[in-house]
């Protein structure tokens, strides 16, 4: 499951596959913000990071969030920075979107730049079925749930 590589001392170092699973809407509870912070911390340690949004978690990615009148920090622009932290695998469950009357067009357009292809901009969000996401979960080393 993990890629092996040699570190500077010549020791085998494993990159682990981390999956962050988000199932909570933003603002009503602190889970979404906490998750985002942990994802960014994990990414800084150069691990293989994936992020999944299922159930009410899909609401975290809606575009046009404006928190001015509720007196809370709008942390939604931070999702757009994930690509710069090499978090390029963002999975959104199809069934969860449908149940909530949403399509991918209601979500932010998140991208990353592929340095192997002359920094071509690529979509980070993949809409997947629960069946497909379950397979992806089965391939992870570490699951973190929010």
């Amino acid at each position: 499951m993990s890629d092996e590589m040699l570190n500077e001392e010549g020791n085998v170092q494993r990159t682990k596959k981390f999956m962050y699973v988000n199932r909570k809407a933003p603002y009503g509870t602190v889970y979404a913000l906490e998750s985002l912070e942990v994802v960014l911390i994990g990414a800084a340690f150069e691990q293989d990071v994936s992020v999944a949004f299922i159930d009410d978690g899909v609401y975290q990615l809606t575009k046009g969030q404006n928190t001015t009148d509720i007196g809370m920090k709008n942390f939604s622009p931070t999702y757009a920075a994930l690509g710069d932290y090499e978090v390029t695998k963002i999975y959104v469950e199809k069934e969860s979107l449908e149940k909530r009357g949403l399509t991918v067009d209601d979500l932010q357009h998140l991208v990353w730049e592929d340095e192997d292809e002359d920094y071509a901009e690529k979509d980070s969000i993949k809409v997947v079925s629960a069946e497909e996401l379950g397979q992806i979960f089965a391939d992870q080393d570490i699951m973190l749930n929010f």
């Binding site: 969030q65 404006n66 928190t67 001015t68 709008n74």
Partner: peptide, 13 residues
């Protein structure tokens, strides 16, 4: 409540 809708980006449809 409109401010809560705005916060969540869903003040449409």
């Amino acid at each position: 409540l409109l401010p809560d809708l705005d916060a969540r980006g869903l003040n449409s449809n």
